[in-house]
């Protein structure tokens, strides 16, 4: 076999493996989207249909009737929005203190921030549940957002970004001792916009995807988030695949668009810790 033929064969094999892998990875995504518009007969016949026999937008209307999906959507947007805004704000202030302000025990306090990153949330979820239920905050937005209003990860990322500032820029903060908030808002925030955006994407996705904590602190369907509401469709005795897939399709659409169209952005935000 000539080198050229060998090369051709290798290339075809690479394509073949990649195509099979891509089909396997994409199939559940396709099936969720296609299934969400299938009529019941497509989903329950044997073998189940791969392509919808027609478009049935009625599935979406039905799922919004079956559970308060609209309200749960709003809950998720509100909760993830508040958490994102708060994390950006508290991280900005904390990182600013670490880099631009004189303070005692700087290293110790920063070490404490880093140490909190090592604690798995699930290992301390029981006392946190008790704190919230003892304060009679179950089934409130407070319960869903309070523990997540600060982010050691966000603080860390912003601090790294601030430390890259040119010295003159940082010295400017010292000249006018009273203008820290103005300096933060006018100079630091605009310069750090890419880092802030990355943190915001990360915070939002994390909050949007939460499951364990909302499961413990909410049982009123009107206060539950999208992730819980949508998964509840699967738990009920009369689980209807048509409604389940319509619910999933609704819930996943925003993040799906984000991944398809904002991939570069996400890669930067979510892999910044992994790539030096």
């Amino acid at each position: 076999m000539s080198a050229l033929v060998k090369d051709r064969v290798a290339k075809v094999l690479v394509y073949l493996v990649l195509i099979i892998a891509a089909l396997a990875v994409v199939f559940p995504v396709y099936y969720a989207l296609a299934g969400s518009i299938m009529p019941t007969r497509d989903l329950i016949k044997a073998p189940p249909a791969l392509v919808p026999s027609g478009i049935h937008p009625g599935n979406f209307a039905d799922v919004f009737h079956a559970i308060p999906l609209g309200r749960q959507y709003l809950n998720s947007v509100v909760v993830a929005g508040i958490i994102t805004a708060a994390q950006v704000l508290t991280s900005l202030l904390a990182a600013y203190a670490f880099v631009f302000l004189p303070m005692k025990w700087r290293k110790a306090v920063f070490g404490l921030f880093l140490a909190t990153l090592m604690i798995p949330w699930e290992a301390i979820i029981i006392p946190n549940y008790k704190t919230i239920s003892n304060a009679h905050l179950a089934n409130t937005y407070f319960a869903l957002v309070l523990p997540f209003l600060a982010s050691a990860f966000g603080t860390f990322m912003l601090r790294q970004s601030f430390l890259q500032f040119p010295m003159e820029l940082r010295d400017a903060a010292k000249i006018d001792g009273s203008g820290h908030l103005r300096f933060l808002w006018r100079i630091v925030v605009p310069v750090s916009r890419p880092t802030i955006a990355a943190i915001a994407v990360y915070s939002f996705l994390s909050a949007w995807n939460q499951y364990f904590w909302p499961l413990l602190v909410t049982d009123d369907p009107k206060m539950q988030t999208l992730q819980l509401g949508m998964s509840q469709l699967n738990n009920s005795e009369s689980a209807d695949p048509r409604l389940i897939l319509a619910g999933v399709a609704c819930s996943v659409l925003p993040t799906l668009l984000l991944v398809v169209f904002g991939q570069k952005f996400i890669v930067k935000g979510l892999t910044s810790g992994a790539v030096k």
Binding site: V25, V26, V29, Y31, G35, N209, V259, V260
Partner: peptide, 16 residues
């Protein structure tokens, strides 16, 4: 693509 799916939504799809 799977990155767009939360653990809950991925699990529900596979449950179906």
């Amino acid at each position: 693509l799977p990155f767009a799916f939360s653990a809950a939504s991925a699990s529900v799809i596979f449950a179906v």
